[in-house]
């Protein structure tokens, strides 16, 4: 999914027209800025999944044989092999960690935090 590049998390009407085909301005559900929250969430997802795809499919597969001409600094791992069988997995764990942390902040900023 794609998101636009504006920084206007707070302006919910921008978010709801661009993200979802629905033209309804505000959702009737709980307190807090639901559209702004969803928009910020989508931006974060797009960023993290771009890294995810680049590491797995780029470094771990398409560029791996070429990267093998170098070694992971301080080790004897061929670099592409390391990304394919070790590094990508570490990156996946870190990506989820960043998502969990950032979403807690986003939840609080838009007032949709859980009790």
């Amino acid at each position: 999914m794609s998101t636009q590049k504006t920084n206007s998390h707070e302006t919910s009407e921008v978010a709801s027209t661009q993200i979802s085909p629905s033209k309804q301005a505000e959702s009737p559900s709980p307190t807090g800025d639901v559209s702004g929250h969803f928009h910020a969430n989508l931006k974060l997802i797009a960023l993290l999944l771009a890294v995810w795809a680049f590491v797995a499919f780029g470094l771990g597969i398409l560029m791996a044989d070429w990267l093998n001409q170098w070694r992971l600094p301080g080790t004897t791992f061929p670099l592409g092999f390391w990304f394919a069988q070790q590094g990508s997995i570490y990156v996946f764990v870190v990506l989820i960690l960043i998502y969990v942390r950032s979403m807690r902040r986003i939840d609080r900023r838009f007032g949709v935090d859980e009790a």
């Binding site: 959702s27 307190t31 807090g32 939840d107 838009f110 007032g111 949709v112």
Partner: peptide
């Protein structure tokens, strides 16, 4: 649509 919107937020 309301249901979909409500599952997108935690609170």
């Amino acid at each position: 649509r309301d249901m979909v919107r409500s599952i997108r937020v935690p609170g």
